[in-house]
Amino acid sequence: MARLTINGTTRDIDVDPDTPLLWALREQAGLTGTKYGCGIAQCGSCTVHVDGVATRSCSMPVSAFTPEQQIVTIEGLSPDGSHPVQRAWLALDVPQCGYCQAGMIMAAAALIAQNPKPSDADIDAEMTNICRCGTYNRVRAAIKLAASGETPASNG
């Protein structure tokens, strides 16, 4: 059993304590937007925010979290896809297959929250997620667009 606060709601989750947060999110909490890519903190597909910090959820057991820690997944980043990073992603039509994109978006949102105007070098250093479709250049452009504060207001 684990008591976790996910997307603003604290809940008791019936799960073995050594289960990685990723699998508790996907299999117990039913939040499948967070993806499995490697299981060893290499690819970033499983990135969520823990108290605002981008965290690779595949490599931390649920027992490592307290209910006070705010876990935010892609489903909770904004109620309707309106986070500036999501809007920038839509404006530039970033995803290809899309599988890595939840992790990319969560990593990018955390980066901008900490560093509102990231340089190329900052982006290179912080955005180490893998995208096999090769969306990197558009991810970079979308981060800059989101950081510029000039993302289109709505989905369109």
Binding site: R26, L31, T32, G33, T34, K35, Y36, T73, I74, E75, L77, G81, Q86, W89, L90, D93, V94, P95, G98, Y99, Q101, A102, I105, N155
Partner: peptide, 18 residues
């Protein structure tokens, strides 16, 4: 623009693994 972008930004897109 692609027809299938929006759901890929919110976690809604279902893949086989989901």
């Amino acid at each position: 623009p692609r027809l299938d972008t929006a759901d890929k930004l919110t976690g809604k897109q279902v893949y086989g693994i989901d």
